[in-house]
């Protein structure tokens, strides 16, 4: 099975994250880049599927040169090869144009299954899996809590607020995963060494047959108009229970229109 796992380098959530003042895009220099956490679960699931069914795992990432760190990490976990979609023309792409560019790259790579995390910790749109599936004309199985492949059939448990849905489709398909699905492995020291020798192909927009007029900040359908630093959290209200604690809490909740 030819599995492509899409990963994104995001700013470390443990550090201070900022937008750039000039073009209001993410300031990638301001924070350490790490693998988007949910994508690590996607990588783990891809590796497990490969171990169970054979085949190959290819990493696809779109991002600036710095994203090679993320590629190395995923290769160290056990992926076989990588494709790095990187071009200045892609800077500032929104979700729609990112999905277009990624879909073009995926068409070029070829796949039986595309696996990705259900959202990124920076943009948090959570729409890429669905958009990719539409653009590629294949089924989408999102928010997967469990994935089973049997020949060309794929079945997932799709996590919902009330339990899960069983969703079935046939390959090729796009799957997005949630963190309950598995426990991502650590890279091993041998894996880190081996990763240095694994092939990484870099694609520019022309290589992936991406029209430059459909990507980048200038062609984005969504625009960051303004942004502000989140205000510091205000001090909480302390309710002292003098026999009427319950009533006071109910009053508070009502005042906030929670009840």
């Amino acid at each position: 099975m030819n599995i492509v796992v899409c990963v994104k380098q995001v700013p470390d959530t443990a550090t201070e994250r900022k937008l750039r003042s000039d073009d209001k895009t993410l300031d990638r220099e301001a924070a350490d880049g790490v693998v988007n956490e949910l994508d690590e679960y996607a990588v783990e699931e891809a590796l497990k599927l490969k171990e169970a069914h054979g085949g190959e795992v290819t990493v696809l990432t779109m991002g600036p040169g710095k994203a090679t760190e993320t590629i190395r990490k995923v290769l160290a976990m056990g992926a076989d090869k990588a494709v790095h979609l990187s071009d200045d023309a892609l800077h500032g792409s929104d979700a729609l144009s990112t999905s277009y560019a990624m879909a073009q790259a995926l068409k070029k790579i070829g796949f039986d299954l595309v696996v990705l995390g259900s959202e990124s910790t920076d943009a948090r749109t959570g729409v890429l899996a669905a958009m990719l599936a539409e653009r590629l004309g294949v089924p989408q199985l999102t928010l997967a809590n469990k994935v089973e492949v049997n020949g060309s059939a794929i079945a997932v448990q799709r996590l919902t607020d009330y339990g899960y849905d069983k969703v079935e489709a046939s390959l090729p398909a796009v799957v997005s995963v949630v963190e309950k699905i598995n426990e991502p492995r650590y890279p091993s020291f041998k894996g880190i060494m081996a990763a240095k020798k694994k092939p990484v192909e870099t694609l520019g927009v022309a290589d992936a047959e991406i029209s430059a007029d459909q990507v980048g900040l200038a062609n984005a359908w969504s625009e960051v108009v303004d942004f502000a630093v989140a205000p510091p959290r205000a001090a909480g209200t302390v309710v002292k229970d003098e026999g009427d604690g319950g009533a006071k809490i109910a009053e508070f909740l009502a005042s906030k229109k929670f009840v």
Binding site: R185, Y186, P187, S188, F189, K190, G191
Partner: peptide
């Protein structure tokens, strides 16, 4: 052990790091 941290100073031919 899976991470390769329990055999570091031994030769790679023997399975070390």
């Amino acid at each position: 052990g899976d991470a390769g941290l329990l055999g570091l100073p031994y030769p790679e031919e023997l399975g070390g790091g």
